[in-house]
C-alpha cells in the first residue's frame, strides 16, 4: 500500500524497504536489544544489525532481503548507528501484542550518510511517521571466528536450553561450557553463592540434532555478557553452539518469523579466562 502511494519520492533514497507485518522485524531486533545503540549495515543481501557490549560480546541480527516484500538499495553497503531502543519503540508504536484485527505495515527509508532513518507505519488507516537520527557508525569488533577453526559444534533444539538459560544462577560470575566427544558431552556449569550447578546433555538426546565435537574444551564466559542472549533463545527454534581453538563462543539462533520465514541471530563472546582448553581426555 505504502510503496505504491509514494513511489515517486523513493528516488531520493539510498535504501527503501517495505514489509506488511512489522513484527517480523521487531521481534528479531528485540532478540539483540541489550544495549541502547546498534549499528545497521545494509547491503543488497539485506540488513545486518549489530549490538556490542564491553568489547567482549557481539550480537548480530540478519534480516535478509526476502523478509521484505520490497527492498531496494542503491549501494553495495550502507552503515549507520541508531538508537535501538527508540527504533523498537517506533516499530511497535501500535502495540507489540499480536492483534487479530490487523497488521502494521512498514516502509523504511534512508537517504544516505547524515540523514535520518524514516519509518512510515500504517495500521487500520492510521499513519505514523518517525524520523530517527542516525549517528556515525562505529567500527564493530571482528571476532575472526571462522568455521575452519571450529573445534566443537553442536546443533540442538532450543527448547531444552531455555530452562538452563532462563534459570541461570546470576550470583555466579561465569558460565562454564564444556563440550567434549566423551562424557559428559555438553555441560553448563555455574558457581554461585548457594553452590554450583551442572546441566549436562548427552549427545544422543532427542534434542541434539548434530554433534561434532573433536576435543574436550572447557571455557568460561562472563554470565553478564551471555545473559542477554536469553532473549534470542526464547524466540528461537534451533541453536548452534560452536567454539573455536581460542575458546571463542558462537551461538547462532534460528528464529521463525510470524510469516514462517527463517531469520538468524548470532552472538559471539570471548572467553573469560583460559582453562586448559587443549587438554586431551
Amino acid at each position: 500500500m505504502l510503496s505504491t502511494q509514494r513511489s515517486d519520492d523513493d528516488d531520493q533514497y539510498m535504501l527503501v524497504a517495505c514489509l506488511d507485518n512489522v513484527r517480523n522485524v521487531s521481534t528479531i531486533l528485540k532478540a539483540i536489544h541489550f544495549k541502547d545503540t546498534a549499528t545497521v549495515f545494509a547491503s543488497p543481501m539485506g540488513l545486518k544489525i549489530t549490538v556490542e557490549d564491553a568489547k567482549c560480546v557481539q550480537a548480530n541480527a540478519f534480516i535478509q532481503e526476502a523478509i521484505f516484500h520490497h527492498y531496494v538499495i542503491k549501494e553495495e553497503q550502507l552503515a549507520f548507528k541508531i538508537n535501538l531502543t527508540v527504533l523498537l519503540e517506533c516499530l511497535t508504536i501500535f502495540g507489540s501484542s499480536s492483534m487479530p484485527s490487523g497488521n502494521t505495515s512498514l516502509k523504511m527509508c534512508y537517504a544516505g550518510y547524515g540523514c535520518p532513518l524514516i519509518l512510515m507505519l500504517e495500521e487500520e488507516g492510521v499513519l505514523t511517521d518517525c524520523n530517527i537520527k542516525t549517528l556515525e557508525p562505529d567500527d564493530v569488533l571482528d571476532f575472526d571466528f571462522c568455521s575452519s577453526n571450529v573445534i566443537n559444534k553442536i546443533i540442538m533444539k532450543s527448547e531444552c536450553l531455555k530452562e538452563v538459560f532462563s534459570e541461570l544462577d546470576v550470583t555466579s560470575d561465569i558460565l562454564q561450557i564444556l563440550m567434549s566427544p566423551d562424557h559428559p558431552y555438553l555441560q553448563f556449569s555455574t558457581f554461585g553463592n548457594a553452590g554450583s550447578t551442572h546441566s549436562s546433555f548427552p549427545k544422543d538426546s532427542e534434542m541434539v540434532e548434530s554433534f561434532q565435537c573433536s576435543q574436550t574444551q572447557t571455557n568460561r564466559y562472563k554470565i553478564s555478557l551471555l545473559k542477554p542472549s536469553v532473549k534470542a533463545l526464547a524466540l528461537s527454534t534451533r541453536i548452534s553452539i560452536r567454539t573455536d581453538d581460542r575458546g571463542f563462543l558462537s551461538l547462532q539462533y534460528m528464529i521463525q518469523t510470524e510469516d514462517g520465514q527463517i531469520c538468524f541471530v548470532e552472538y559471539y563472546c570471548s572467553p573469560d579466562e583460559e582453562v586448559d582448553h587443549n587438554e586431551e581426555s
Binding site: 492510521v126 499513519l127 505514523t128 511517521d129 524520523n131
Partner: peptide, 13 residues
Amino acid sequence: ETDMASISTHFQN
C-alpha cells in the same frame, strides 16, 4: 519530539 527522533501519528476521517 526528542533529541533522537520525531514521531507523529495521524488519524483521519
